[in-house]
């Protein structure tokens, strides 16, 4: 059982949780993730470790409520426990001094890019960050990103905050206005990462993305997270989760991630209806 010592709502559906996990906190590097199983009947899902404090023995995860499991986690409060947390998993982000690096976070992907931007800044890079969301409410970690970036650009689809448009528009402007950056890190929804890869492919800018396939054990045993990278089969849990964006077969991964869409929807509606009934009893 893993004690949740702090929770914070970052946006209407996005929650930040600080969890006691001393062994993981001690080992964790930027880019690592954990597998979380919130309840005794719960699913195992992968979540990036956003931050860690080896002295306090805590890790930070940021979760967006989408399906049943993520709703259960985001509704947990301080003092409650996550049933299982295991890690740190995956290969750490390759961090070195490249020169100028653009870090792109889309939606809750900003939570994943934040520790990478921080590590790249600490490694001596000039960090230009672009974070995007559908609207103002869903923009997260703006201050934190500003603190680790030399320049921060915020975009929203509806223009309610920052520049109106997509992160790729902002990336294109950076490339046109400042010249080619030495590297790009992009993390967000798969279509966004695919779009970023398409922008940087032609000018030949080294680009990394962090993939989020279906995953169970996180140790290379289930094969659910297999992705095609450079025409080779890779397991995102042990070979990744970060890969060369120009080598990733995004279309295949987008299709694979829909594999359990039906049952996931079913589980979520059953769960949602149940909690609504419970709420009525309280009234």
């Amino acid at each position: 059982m893993y004690h949740i010592i702090q929770t914070e709502t970052l946006a209407p559906t996005i929650t930040k949780l600080t969890v006691e996990a001393p062994l993981i906190a001690r080992k964790r590097k930027a880019g690592n993730f954990v597998i979380v199983r919130p309840t005794p009947t719960g699913e195992r899902i992968p979540l990036t470790i956003v931050d860690s404090d080896p002295d306090k023995g805590t890790i930070v995860i940021i979760v967006q409520a989408i399906g049943k499991t993520t709703h259960i986690i985001t509704e947990m409060v301080e003092g409650e426990y996550l049933m299982d947390v295991v890690g740190p998993l995956g290969e750490p982000t390759p961090v070195s001094d490249f020169g100028t690096v653009v870090c792109i976070g889309g939606g809750v992907g900003t939570a994943v890019i934040y520790p990478i931007a921080k590590a790249l800044k600490e490694a001596g890079n000039r960090v230009v960050s672009i974070i995007g969301a559908r609207n103002r409410e869903l923009v997260i970690l703006e201050d934190e990103m500003a603190a680790v970036s030399d320049e921060l650009i915020v975009t929203t689809d509806d223009g309610s905050h920052g520049k109106k448009g997509f992160v790729t528009d902002a990336l294109q402007e950076v490339i046109t206005g400042q010249g080619k950056p030495n590297a790009v890190y992009a993390i967000g929804p798969l279509p966004m990462m695919r779009a970023v890869a398409n922008v940087t492919r032609e000018p030949g800018i080294r680009t990394w993305v962090s993939l989020n396939p279906i995953m169970m054990d996180g140790t290379g045993m289930c094969g659910a997270c297999r992705v095609t990278v450079g025409n080779e089969m890779k397991f995102a849990c042990v070979d990744g989760p970060e890969f060369d964006a120009h080598e990733v077969n995004f279309d295949e991964l987008i299709a694979r991630n829909r594999t359990y869409a039906g049952p996931e929807q079913e589980a979520f509606s059953t769960w949602k209806n149940r909690t609504e009934t419970t709420d009525c009893k309280h009234l």
Binding site: C222, G223, A267
Partner: peptide, 30 residues
């Protein structure tokens, strides 16, 4: 081999045995 609907036996068995997918939706893993 990476089409949706292609599973390793390990994935199928882990889902059903360890995660009790045969009791879905009582258990969350499908």
């Amino acid at each position: 081999e990476n089409l949706s609907g292609v599973y390793s036996a390990s994935e199928l068995l882990t889902r059903v045995n360890l995660m009790k997918a045969y009791k879905f939706p009582e258990f969350d893993t499908p």
